[in-house]
Structure formats: structure tokens, C-alpha cells
Amino acid sequence: MNFDFALIMTSIPQLLEGIGLTFQLWFLSAILGLLLAIALMLMRISGKWFLYVPAMVYIYIFRGTPILVQIFIIYYGLPQVEFIRESFMWSILREPFGCGILALTLNTGAYVSEILRGGVLGVPKGLGEAAAALGISKVQRFIYITAPLAIRLSLPAYSNDVISLMKSTALVSTITLLDMMGIARIIVSETYAPYEIFISLMIIYLILTWTTQKIFALLERRMNRHTIQ
């Protein structure tokens, strides 16, 4: 057994052919997941039971089960349900890509909504009161005081979740998608060289993680100018 560097050199370009799909899955579900998370978070803090109870149940289920199970339920399970096959959703769910996006979105939405809620609850109550005492309306208080501060507070945890979402995209290789992970598995099954291929892929993922962390660190520093003494 020896380490085949030539194989690494030839396989990295092959792996990178899947990076486009990884990015699509990652960014699309990050954006859709964030929208879902905002909606869930607003439901959660609404104070109305018919809104926060469903949101809580949703979050509980999606955080309490493995994402791989969620992917399989959506990919293998849902096509079995008749009304889904007849609905507009079918055009999305027929394709593994659509299933992947849906599963990742639903999953990350649950986690991010809790992060955002933590941010909102972390804003000192006195600030809202001060704004209220000035006669600023409830909606405006949320937009101009609570939200900007909550975003700053949630950013570190959110960046972790974005990275964790990137890692989760690798799971779509289990439903036939050829993202970087899917390509790597095919190359390994052809070459029997798991070390070379998987370690190359690890390095690619580490670069993505590192870059994401740097971008968020920059963003945090920009947003927290007001706390620098």
C-alpha cells in the first residue's frame, strides 16, 4: 500500500466538478432555510398558542431526528403519497435535487429559528422599553431596535449552522446526487483508493469551512463596531 499522489492530482479536478452542485444545495437551502427560520421564530415569539405550538412541534421533530432520515422520508417516502404526486410539489420532489433542497431547508430552518429566537431574547428588555417610552410603535421597535441587535447576537451561532449545513449537503450523495461526496464515492469504488480521494475531499471541505468562518468573522467585526471601545 502506498500513497498515490498522482491519483490525488487527477481526482481533485474530478471532485471539483461536483462543487457547483454542493454550492447550489448549500446556498439555496441556506436562503430558503433562513426565510423559514424567520417565520418559525416569529411564530414562536408571537405569544399566540395557535402559532407557537405548531412552531414548537415542528422544531422539536426536525431537531430530534437525523437529517438522513428526513432526506429518506422525503426522497423515498413522499412519492408514495398520492396527493403529493398530484400536487405542484411533484415537479420538485420527482428530482433528487428538489428532495435534497427540501430536506436541507426544512432541517436548517428548525435549527436557525432557535438561534434567531435566542438572539431576540438576548436583546435587553430595557431597550425595547426605552423605545416604547419614546412612542415608537411595536413593529418599528422590532425593526429598528430588536432585529438589528438580535442579528448581531445570533451571528456566531448562525455561522456555525451555515457550516453545519454545508457538511449536511454531503448526505445527498445517499440519494444518487453527484455532489463532491457522491463523485468521491464513485472514484473510490473504482480505484479502491479511499485515503487519497477522501483526504483530498476533506481538504476541499476544510477550505470551504475556513473561508466561511473568515467571512462571518469579518461580518461580525463590521457589525460590532459599536462595541469596540
Binding site: 457538511k167 464515492r185 473510490v188 479502491y192 479511499p194 477522501f198 476533506m202 476544510l206
Partner: peptide
């Protein structure tokens, strides 16, 4: 850095197939 920055499934596959190759050799 390595284990928090790479997908779990990749670690799992590397560990399983890598160890198999090594052991077999």
C-alpha cells in the same frame, strides 16, 4: 479543525474504507 470542518459521512467512509485497505494490506 479537521473533525469540525468536514462532513461526518466523509469521516465515517474514510475511517471504514481506509482502515479496511490498511488492514487488508
Amino acid at each position: 479543525v479537521v473533525f469540525r470542518g468536514t462532513p461526518e459521512i466523509l469521516v465515517l467512509l474514510l475511517f471504514y474504507f481506509g482502515s479496511a485497505i490498511t488492514l487488508t494490506a
